[in-house]
Each structure stands twice: as C-alpha cells, then as structure tokens.
C-alpha cells in the first residue's frame, strides 16, 4: 500500500521544505516540528541549482541549502538521520536523478537513485521537470523498488495529456492550483475547483498545492473537494525569517509547528464542511 493510505482517514496536510535549509542540523529539527504540527506526508526538497519552477521564496531556500553543503549523498544521510514516522517524498529536478551514481556498483541514473532512496525509507518522488513523456525509466525504477511517482497536473493540462498522466501516476496527484511558479499568495485561485473537477474520477487522492498560505485557504480548498493540501512557501518564509535572524532557532521550530497545526486544522474544518454539504445534498 503506497502513499494513498495517508489520505484514507481524512484530509492530508503535506508540507514542503528544502532539506538542509538553512543548515543540516536546523533542518532536521524543522522537519520534525512539521510532523508534530500534524504533517501526514512530507515533501522534502533535494535542491537543484536551476529550480526553474520555483518562485523567489524556494529559490532562496535552495541557495541556502546548497551553500550549507547539501548534496544528493548528504540528502540521503539526512533522511536516515530524521526521526519522523510519516512518509517522505523526495521532490527534485531530473538532472540530479539522471546523474546519481552508486559508488559501489558504478551504476548511474534513475535506477541507482530510486534504489538508494528506497534504502533510506523514501516512499515516492515528485520530479518537477519530468513530464509523463520522459518518465519511463524512473517509472520502471519506482516499480522495481516499490516507490510512488507523483505527477503535477497544471491548470493547462487537458485531454490526452491528462489521460497519459493518469496511467503513470501513483500515490497521489499534485493538482497545481494556479499557473506560474511556487509562492504563498493572499487568496485562493478560482482555478482550483475547475482543476479538481478534471481529475474528480481518478482513483488516486488529489492534493492541491501552489499559493496556499493560511488555515482558511486550506479549509476552502478541502471543502472544494481536495483530499490534501501541499504547502511550501508559507513554511519556507518562516525558515527564511529565522535564517535572517528575526527570531532564534527554537522559535523558528515552534512557529513552523504552529503554522503546520493551523493548516492541518484548516484542512480538517474543510472536510467537515464538505461532509455537511454532501449530507444536505
């Protein structure tokens, strides 16, 4: 049973942070704080030097993490060092997957990457610049090692492409709530409901991301039919402020935990609202 299980008992809260931001040790604490705050799955970013789909918040997180020495090998050690029980999903860009080399066997590429990821306990991947057309080798490797491969559905994804992704996706589908790059926003996109409607009959759970900032956003998105919410920039903003010295390290962890709780509670409230609406129908 893959990542689907996480969504079975109510709406899932899926936070994203870049591993090693702003340092290895602090980042371990931050990820653990997110679990305490109610995270159901954690998308843990493996930073790539050219993050073309990210807004400024996550671009800067990537720079902080890389400057603190994060590499794919360190990342896998990081996952081993983490003391969390919730499933972890590795979010990255394809060149790091393609170049990954198993030092013992010399094998390079998606299979070596997936093998190592499975070994440290990662359960799935989101590879931002890997559309379904190019995903064959990684999909095979995921099947071999029992990992899920999550795809992102954009507001512009329609027709044949949607069908193609439906065939390849497992774990959950990442519904991108709006066009553009990642980043926290002040409002919920009108495109959310329309995007959810396009995947309504899919078997996998639907998690909505891009732009979610508050518990109220989370509530509205789950009420609109999402099985989970993905939140990155609003959490990374807290880490960034901490890294800038606005508050001490322990407070950063506390703030992350309470932001996580706000988002999780928002999601739960959204689920109740949806149940009430469905009953009255």
């Amino acid at each position: 049973m893959g990542l689907e299980r996480v969504f079975a008992d109510g709406p899932a809260f899926v936070p994203y942070v870049a591993a090693g931001d702003p340092s290895y040790e602090e980042s371990l604490e931050y990820v653990e704080a997110l679990e305490r705050g109610g995270a159901d799955v954690i998308e843990l970013g493996l930073p790539f030097s050219e993050p073309i789909a990210e807004g400024s918040t996550i671009q800067e997180a990537v720079v902080r993490s890389l400057e603190a020495g994060m590499t794919p090998d360190r990342y896998f050690e990081f996952v081993e060092d983490l003391d969390v029980d919730v499933p972890l999903v590795c979010m990255t860009y394809y060149n790091l997957v393609a170049q990954y080399t198993n030092d013992e066997t010399g094998e390079r590429g998606p299979r070596a990457f997936a093998e190592r990821a499975a070994e440290v306990g990662i359960e799935g991947f989101v590879v931002v610049d890997l559309p379904a057309e190019e995903a064959g080798p990684l999909r095979e490797a995921c099947d071999e090692f029992g990992l899920d491969l999550v795809f992102i559905i954009a507001p512009t994804t329609k027709g044949d492409r949607l069908e193609q992704m439906r065939e390849h996706v497992s774990g959950y589908v990442y519904v991108q709530a709006r066009l553009g790059v990642t980043g926290a926003r002040e409002d919920v996109s009108d495109q959310t409901e329309e995007s959810l409607a396009r995947v309504a009959d899919w078997d996998v759970p639907k998690a909505v991301g891009f732009g979610i900032k508050t518990g109220e956003h989370a509530e509205r998105i789950v009420a609109a039919g999402a099985d989970g919410i993905i939140v990155g920039s609003a959490l990374v903003d807290i880490i960034a402020a901490g890294a800038d010295g606005e508050y001490p390290f322990t407070e950063t962890a506390q703030r992350l935990e309470s932001k996580a709780r706000e988002l999780k509670e928002g999601a739960l409230a959204g689920a109740e609202k949806r149940a009430a609406t469905e009953q009255s129908d």
Binding site: Y94, V128, P131, E134, I152, A154, T156, T157
Partner: peptide
C-alpha cells in the same frame, strides 16, 4: 527531449 514543468507542456 522535453524536460519542463507540466504547466509548460501544453
């Protein structure tokens, strides 16, 4: 090939 985020594929 075409290694781009999904939002650009269409």
């Amino acid at each position: 090939g075409q290694f781009v985020p999904e939002s650009l594929m269409p």
